[in-house]
Structures are given as C-alpha cells and as structure tokens.
Design a protein around this nucleic acid. Structure first.
Lengths: 260, 260
DNA sequence: CTATCTTTGTGCACGCGTTCACAAAGACAT
DNA sequence: ATGTCTTTGTGAACGCGTGCACAAAGATAG
C-alpha cells in the first residue's frame, strides 16, 4: 500500500490520531455498503469484520469522533456515514488536477472511484504539446504552461502527480507555487515540499519489493521446515566485508547493477 | 500510499522490523541513483537526505542487516545495493500475473518500473472473452478460465488484482487456490485470505480521503487564525444524538448518502 | 606510533498505537 | 420498577518505532 505522510511530524490533528484517520475511509466504505442494503444499525463487531479490523480498535477509533453508538444496540448506519463523511471533509467538493497524462494518468482520469465521494477531476495537465486539446475521459488535456492559471481558476488544492520520475519534483514545485497544499504522488521519487503541504505516495515498485521480501522469507522457512539446507541467500551476514579496495559479494562476483 | 499488510500480525521476519523492510526499497532506489553516477561511498547523512528519512533511523535500519558501513567513511554503494537487493529477494526472478485488464491493469502492464528489479509480467488475465488473445504491452491477454493453469505453468507466486471490486474476492480465492501467496490489491475491497498469504493494498480513494481530511483541517486552522468564526463542520460533536427514531445530522437534514 | 577527526552502531528513553478486559449505559422483557 | 442481557466506551498495560546522544571504530595525518 502507499504509505507515509511526509513532513508535519505526526501531529495529532484535532486529537484524532493519524492511524485512525487512515482507517476512517475503510469504515466509511463498509458503512456505505450497509446503507445501500438498508441496514439500520450495526455492531462494532460486525462492522469491524467488514472493514477487516479488530472491534476494539474500531470502537476506540470512533470514540475519537464522539459517542455515536448506543450501548446494547450498536451504531446507526446513516448517522455514522454522515459523521465520518463530515469528519473526512467529504461533504464538500474537492477539485483535483492530474498532471502527467500517460497510461497511468489516463487510467486514473477514467477511474470511477474518483468522481464519487466529493472528488472531481477538474483538470488534466501534460507537458506534451501534441496532447493539448485531446479529450481523455471526456476532459480536454491542457498544457503545462498554463498550470498556474488552471490551478487558480479551478480552486484546486489537491494535485495528483503521474509524470515520469524526472519531472515529478519540478511539477510538484509548480503545483505548490500555484497553491496546491496536498499532493498524491505516483512517481517513484522522494518529493520535498515546504511545511504545510501534505504528500502521500503510491509506489507500485515499493509494494512489490515488500511482497518479494516476505515471499522469499516464506520460501526460506518452507525449505528449512523440509529439512533442506537453507539457501545461501538466507544466511547471516558474511564475515567478508567489502572495502573500497575489495568490492565483491560474499559469494564471489558482484552481479550487474540493476536498473531503476 | 498503499498501506497495511493483512494477517500475519506484525511478526518480525528474521529480526527485521516491518517498518525497516518498508524503507529498504527507498534506500535501494537512492543507492541505485548514486551507483549510476559512479559514487563509490556515501555517508548515512547523505543517503538519508536522498531517501527523505532521518539519518539515525537509516543507520538503525542498516544495523538490522549487519555491519555494512565503515566508520569515518560511510557505506560502500555497490556493496550495499547488492546486500539490500539480496535481502529483499530481488536477486531472483519474480513472475507476476495481473488479473483484470481494464484501464488500470493495462497501465500497470505498460509500466516500466515493473520489468526492472526482477519483476516480470508473466501473464495478463481477464474475464472478458472478447479480450482473449489481444496483446497488451506485447503480452496476449488470457481468459480467466485458464487462471489455474496459467499460474502453475509460470510459477507465479505474486498476483496483482485490478478487477472491479465485485470480482476481487473471487479472483483472490482462485489465485490463492492456484498457489499465489502474495497479492497486491488495487480493488477497493477488503480481501480475506488464509494464513500464510500476504496482501497489500493500493487504494487511491483512501489516499485522497486522507488528504481531504488534512486539507479540511488546514482550511479550518487558517480560518481560525484569521479570527473568522470556525466553520460548523469543525466544531466538536453535537449534543444532539441520533437514535433510530431521530435520524438527523446536527445541522438539520441529513445529506443524501454518497455512492461508493 | 600517537593524536585527531569523522562517521558508524547502539543503548536508552519517549510516544504512539494496539489490545485486553471491564464498568457503565441503555434496551428489553417481565 | 426491577432485573437481565447486550454492546459500547475507555482505563491500563504492553510493544513497536523513533530519535537522541554518545562511545567505539577506523581513517588519516604528522
């Protein structure tokens, strides 16, 4: 999953822990599903199961919002949907701009989950002049030169970056200069932003690498359980240390450096 | 960011904390960039800056892998690239299957970051018979009916789900039954999997909602700093409680329920 | 060989997040 | 009205992650 806000060192926003905020959308989704099935009330146990979390955690999370439950009964679904929506700021309209209309940018523009919940794709921006005017998902692509004006005119405060990594920081700087204060970054780059600007990153490559780590570990454990000798790759750090004059891996030659 | 592993409750894998594992890909990326510029060594301070983290944290992270640095000098870039790659399991080939070739699935198939770093798109799978045979990113799409065989034949252990939410759990079950033990889920659904299977989720909608929360909060603080009266949406929980017979928001009528 | 200087590796303390376990609160039946 | 039963809300304990601050290690110069 994409993780980690940058800057603003874990300040509790209005007393609501960051971890709780990250789970509210999950609860909201489960509650919306219940609401569509016209379920009037739900217990913490049921809702927690639907959201895939511990029921105690869910109750504690809700306790930060206020006392919205009824003991012996549970939570009123409609009321809770409204309260969480309000808390997350989804009762207002959020115009969003997507910068970098390649495969991913176009896919996001077409993504249905965007339009619902108060988020509206207000503008698509790309650096390629040939794309200017071409409609993507029914919205004409505009050129980067007009970025500043586009952001201002539409009152965009949330920007989505889907550019190649090399362009990400520059685009980010321009977005921030134009007034954007929240950025969702899909480019595999560490963005640096001034205080007061929130950045969240979604990084496919990182997610896969984390999965690979656990996958390798599972394979190693399995082999150990089979009584097979553990693979060399799973052994502790080798005694041979690399020095500037001795650059070799423990098992001989160093493999070719992998591309980014 | 996509966040949160499901199941397997925070077990320290071979002594390496989960939080550290999640940062290793970040370090690896920064190190690879240095390697391409032929930088021989790097200090924890420099590398930490490039990766966007605290230098003490970076040193502690590396200490879990072993003592790979040289006091007074820093870390050997090439050696560290190799060690982290090995630790993450990137020295081997990981065939990946993408299920659900819509806008997003196609975008991922075309994504360059996939191919590098040992991950290889081994198969594209979709439920639409009309798509079968159509090449996407140079790889012919295969039908869901053959999912089991495709996974087995290619030795796929990592699956990527980019289906509509309604199909995600079913696809997940089939993947797991076929032998997949790691899943990257882009569908906005809580997947339930048996023990031993890792799930990571990437959820655009959740990321946006978290950003909206902080955005709303920033707007509220700003207004308060201006001496303006705080907006009603930012005030503490209202005294009026909703009961099954009194379903109203604190400010009057309940807004229409939002779509999922 | 000794002294100095740089940078790592880590002991320690602190704070956040999670979980347990239970008292309090309300619904509901009698 | 009283008692029972269900479910919430939360106090308290625990564990993980973070960051400070410093001792130990090694490089480098004289």
């Amino acid at each position: 999953m994409a993780t980690g806000r940058t800057h603003r060192p874990a300040t509790r926003s209005r007393g609501i822990p960051e971890a709780t905020v990250a789970r509210l959308p999950l609860y909201l989704r489960a509650l919306t599903a219940l609401s569509e099935r016209s379920v009037p009330t739900v217990s913490s146990e049921e809702l927690a199961a639907a959201a895939g979390v511990n029921s105690a955690k869910l109750r504690k999370d809700f306790s930060y919002l206020g006392s919205y439950g009824t003991r012996g009964v549970g939570y009123d679904v409609e009321y809770l949907v409204y309260q969480i929506s309000r808390e997350l700021g989804l009762t207002q309209d959020w115009p969003v701009a997507i910068v970098g209309i390649g495969n991913l940018g176009a896919a996001l523009a077409n993504y249905g989950g965007f339009a619902s919940r108060g988020f509206r794709v207000a503008a698509l921006i790309d650096a390629d002049p040939a794309m200017a005017g071409t409609p993507v998902a029914g919205i004409p692509v505009q050129h980067t030169d007009d970025l500043d004006r586009i952001i201002s005119d539409n009152g965009v405060s949330i920007g989505v970056i889907t550019t190649p990594p090399g362009a990400a920081q520059q685009v980010c700087d321009r977005l921030v200069a134009a007034g954007v204060t929240s950025i969702l970054n899909f480019a595999p780059t560490v963005l640096s932003v001034p205080d007061g600007v929130d950045v969240r990153k979604v990084d496919l490559s990182i997610e896969l690498q984390i999965l690979a780590f656990h996958e390798q570990r599972k394979a190693g454990e399995e082999a150990a359980a089979d009584g097979t000798a553990a693979p060399a790759a799973d052994e502790p750090a080798p005694p041979v240390r690399a020095t500037p004059t001795n650059r070799k891996g423990p098992e001989g030659d160093m493999p070719a450096v992998m591309p980014a």
